[in-house]
Design a protein around this nucleic acid. Sequence first.
DNA 1: TGTACATCAGTGAACGCGCGTTCACTGATGTAC
DNA 2: TGTACATCAGTGAACGCGCGTTCACTGATGTAC
Lengths: 230, 230
Amino acid sequence: VQTRRVRARPGEGARLRADILTAAEQLLVEGGTVEALTMRAIAGRVGVTTPSVYLHFADKQALVRAVCLRVWDDLHARMQESVAGITDPFRALGQCGRVYAHFALDHPVQYRELMMRPGPDGRPAAAERSFRYFVDAVARCVSAGLLRGDPRELTLSLWSAVHGCVSLLIAQPDFPWPDPDRLVDETIRLAGYGAALASRMPGAPPPTDRLATALDELTARMPGRDPANP
Amino acid sequence: VQTRRVRARPGEGARLRADILTAAEQLLVEGGTVEALTMRAIAGRVGVTTPSVYLHFADKQALVRAVCLRVWDDLHARMQESVAGITDPFRALGQCGRVYAHFALDHPVQYRELMMRPGPDGRPAAAERSFRYFVDAVARCVSAGLLRGDPRELTLSLWSAVHGCVSLLIAQPDFPWPDPDRLVDETIRLAGYGAALASRMPGAPPPTDRLATALDELTARMPGRDPANP
DNA sequence: TGTACATCAGTGAACGCGCGTTCACTGATGTAC
DNA sequence: TGTACATCAGTGAACGCGCGTTCACTGATGTAC
């Protein structure tokens, strides 16, 4: 609850929209669920009456969607930024997964809202966008010969491994987890080995020496391993 | 909505409790969420007035918990049953994962309620019970030399891989998924290879010939591969 | 065999709450003449 | 420079709904004497 907001001058009414989004995001994080987020509370925090919210959002659903999708933009910015300097495609893929996981753990409420509940509307939009990032990163690994097979299929498995890790951390906070960062790294390491091997061994295993060489290459690129100090 | 229920004879009042549970389960599955499940609807389907529900359940939360935990018993029964005839520990572990995944896909609403949302109360109970099954199966693989490391740590990764797969299928039904059964098998295959390798390669890789032999052994035990027809 | 009575399994009506949303309105601001 | 007016950015009060839950009650059943 806030002191009453000063009325905007004509032409600056759109500033309220941004403030509503910010207040709604705060309250969503504090409340933990969409159900705990009310139009009255949002208006109250901004310092405005409830109907004023409807000046900028058609209904509650539209507001919630805008709040959740806003933070999602940040994910893609962080992904691009963190991968920018990495030339090795396998390392870049691992970095993508790590950024994705930490993003989810940093924004558990929005992640749950968008990724952990079904929704009739354009919910898949967010999932689809993140998914494409992963597909591209996997495709580069396939081009480099580090993985084999259909990039989309491989990505499904890798994505679900990372998602599984963070969604369990989010949904089961009382479970006796180890350190989340370590768990994420371990999950990515395991998924990386798994994808590399499973994609190489649909039928007969490759010649032993080539396999060992490939594994050495992968191992050197796993998270938590300094390339300068193997 | 049902015709009015005939009054139970003294001593048989407890039968109503079972009927309430059944009706609540049906409505929960039809509605898709706990929020869509109302005490009035439950009472209506059983053919009784709303306050009668409070004769057997303290409040709505207690009822929902009873409904969700009831189906969970079925999971453990199915797990034990399906693993009964399997002597190979790695194969048994894979079968555990497959049963778990198919259970989740068969009861998506209950799975989401117990595993995909946070809850202040004894929510971890269900997770902890399933988890212990997996830990035991992993521990047998470690004893047999197929996996290495702490069973609990290994299980976290395997569990989150399977959970990630099914929870995405449940939460993102509009996503263009491939066949769920195949996706589950592929996830288990990938997690199996990943766990085997990641647990064997914390530092230097093992001698090449022993590694290749180990991988051959694992490959023969992967889902979808008939042992009589490799 | 008949009757008073305790008990069990419910009923009927209502309370109180908080929610999303609507609708007629108001008052300050800038603009045209 | 002064004044009428359109517009923009909100306000205040209320509607209507559905929910979980409570509370005083009722009426059939079995039992004791």
